[in-house]
Nucleic acid binder design. Structure first.
Lengths: 159, 159
DNA sequence: TATTGTTATACTCTATAACTATA
DNA sequence: TATAGTTATAGAGTATAACAATA
């Protein structure tokens, strides 16, 4: 079908319909997975944004708040309040960088490392995917990987 | 491999790793698609929540606000403000139901029908999926459909 | 002058609770 | 007493703008 020639009108219509349905189902499943994850994170006493901030921190070396903002692809001003809450929970501490005293290094505490590992698990497990065989999971990963290999920014104004 | 017996330790570890990576990629792509859609909806002058409300309304017959809340799986109080904005934009009107005067029927205006169609397109198109062949799209739809066929509530407290 | 982190402020989205007008 | 819609309020998440300290 349309092997030597370009795509026909009908082909284009088919693709549009298929894309639309795939997108709707895709986002539906994504929403359900997120709900699952939010419940797991809430059980750790963390909101999704705070959990993600902890997850994006390097547990082994201090990093300036600026870098965390970059990893979260959000404004610096948000990092202040996210880290406020992490610090209050005893999971992270702030330390003025002795070299560049404008910067504040963020350090994950021992407890923070423990909780971070639980966050990692919460973000990786997906009850919803248990119905798929290993082969199906593998295929899904490849397809999604092919889409995401295009490269894009993720959120925020302009990077 | 493990044909007659149950899954081995290694199998379980494989699956966990595969699931984790698949979930992360999956949500990454979902976020990118959402960003795309938000940009398209913003071009229509609509926020995502308002656009979805318009999308969920039946353009051909009036429905009580209560039903819209159910379709959006959110609290009644939200519908008030969403419909406020739709009404202000001239896309929807409210009408007291003459039979049960507690209810207010929501009617999509002519302009509302036009914009709703554009919303439908914004929510169906996905620039990100253009890299997939028809066959890949089809496979993706089947896999995602298999996951979503489990049936689950979507958001909100308890239904 | 430019950069880091902070504060103040605002807007979207969502929830709960209290209110009204009906039923 | 129960239901439909509204209002008031609150909290999470995110953004912009102005500021202080430092480079």
């Amino acid at each position: 079908m349309t092997q030597g020639a370009g795509p026909t009108e009908a082909d284009r219509a088919d693709r549009a319909g298929l894309t639309g349905e795939t997108v709707r189902r895709f986002l539906h499943v994504a929403g359900a997975i997120r709900q699952d994850q939010e419940a797991a994170l809430a059980a750790l006493g963390l909101t999704p944004a705070v959990a993600r901030a902890l997850y994006e921190l390097d547990p082994d070396r201090p990093s300036p708040a600026r870098d965390l903002a970059a990893r979260l692809a959000c404004d610096r001003s948000n990092v202040t309040s996210l880290v406020d809450r992490l610090e209050q929970a005893g999971l992270v501490t702030r330390r003025v960088d002795p070299i560049d005293r404008r910067q504040k290094a963020l350090l994950v505490t021992d407890e923070g490392r423990r909780v971070r590992e639980q966050v990692r698990e919460a973000l990786s497990g997906a009850r919803l995917l248990v119905g798929l065989t290993i082969e199906e999971l593998s295929t899904l990963r490849e397809l999604v990987g092919k889409v995401s290999d295009g490269g894009w920014p993720q959120r925020c104004a302009e990077d």
